[in-house]
Design a binder for these strands. Structure first.
Lengths: 193, 193
DNA sequence: AACTTCCATTGATTTTGGTCAAGATAAACC
DNA sequence: GGTTTATCTTGACCAAAATCAATGGAAGTT
């Protein structure tokens, strides 16, 4: 039931049987149908979701009603509005399912408890946090320094699975572009890629 | 000598006298003159620098030789190429001093030792990491969803001290803009701000 | 199978930001 | 103090992306 989650966990920090059992007590499984929300703007993000199966996205809606996708997440990735989750402030993000999903939920209470009582959870979380930061730094650097063509090439290079499973206009939104512009980039660089 | 560092540390995680002493053994003070490098492209980032006094920036140079500023850091902030520091791979970033600086350096060895032997350091690092991630997320959201005028307004709102101490063309670079465009934004929104 | 909705592409036009160039001011250096 | 160098601003022009609009195709629904 929590296969992907624990395989990811053990890949970062090796757990004993009893530690794995302890962590398991804090987890909640949840299924989400395509288009269902995990979080809506205005709510507090009460859980972080780890994806066992499926695909999700987080996005914000600007003052003109336009959606801007902040992130995608597939199997083995976590998603949630960390800022809202940790500070328990109202979120400005929406998170929903792009496909039918199987999730592992970690509540704020579970998170806080595990930080105290399961030292390896603190380590695991620190490592995920660091990796997420490095990935986001890479994305920021590519935004401020690369041409659109190169940014798209590097995206499909880094996340081929997302390109396969997510409609192109959403990838355009993630890059901060109009769908038409992304379509033209693809025709420029040869859409075979 | 490490006043700002420990004041920041204690603000996040309260240290006892003996813990503070233990941490101190792992720290190295360093002074840097304006324009001096902490890290140059092609080197491995061997230390994270915590700023006691002064101002620094990190930037990358693209294939056309153009500089793109990734981040600024003032007193109380840390700077370094985390990706290079943690993986010990060659860095693509440059980090130098915008003003004469007093730094507290944490080497990779010191970092790893403290993660093991000083549990509160692990907590401190996790908290800094999380805050850095949230700040970077906010920046990314503003890039993909806000107008340039609003992005600049939100920047001067959030980092008035940086606007005071750093030349405008560097802030333009940080936003991914030409200096001329930032100048025009400022004249549009009334540069009084 | 017919119908509807979503999606990707392409063209024409407008808007926005970049580039090039010149001039003004201020700061750093000798 | 005078010269050089960095910084900022403004204008004219150019390039790139957004917008508007239309079409064709794919996927989902009944």
């Amino acid at each position: 039931m929590y296969d992907v989650f624990f395989s990811k966990f053990n890949e970062k920090v090796q757990l004993s049987e009893s530690e794995e059992y302890a962590v398991k007590q804090f987890l909640t499984p949840k299924k989400l149908r395509k288009r269902q929300y995990l979080l809506q703007e205005g709510d507090i993000c009460k859980t972080v979701a780890f994806i066992e199966k499926g695909a999700m996205r987080s996005y914000i809606v600007d003052s003109d009603g336009q959606e801007h996708i902040f992130s995608f997440a597939l199997e083995g990735w976590a998603i949630g509005d960390l800022s809202s989750f940790l500070t328990e402030q109202i979120s400005t993000q929406n998170i929903d399912a792009l496909e039918d999903c199987e999730l592992v939920l970690i509540s704020k209470y579970a998170h806080d408890q595990m930080l105290i009582s399961v030292p390896k959870y603190a380590t695991f979380f620190r490592i995920l946090m660091t990796e997420a930061y490095i990935a986001l730094q890479k994305r920021t650097l590519s935004i401020i320094s690369m041409s659109l063509d190169d940014r798209y090439k590097s995206f499909i290079d880094q996340y081929p699975d997302i390109v396969q499973r997510v409609p192109q206009h959403m990838i355009a939104s993630h890059m901060g572009l109009s769908p038409e512009t992304l379509s033209r980039i693809r025709s420029r660089i040869g859409k075979s890629q």
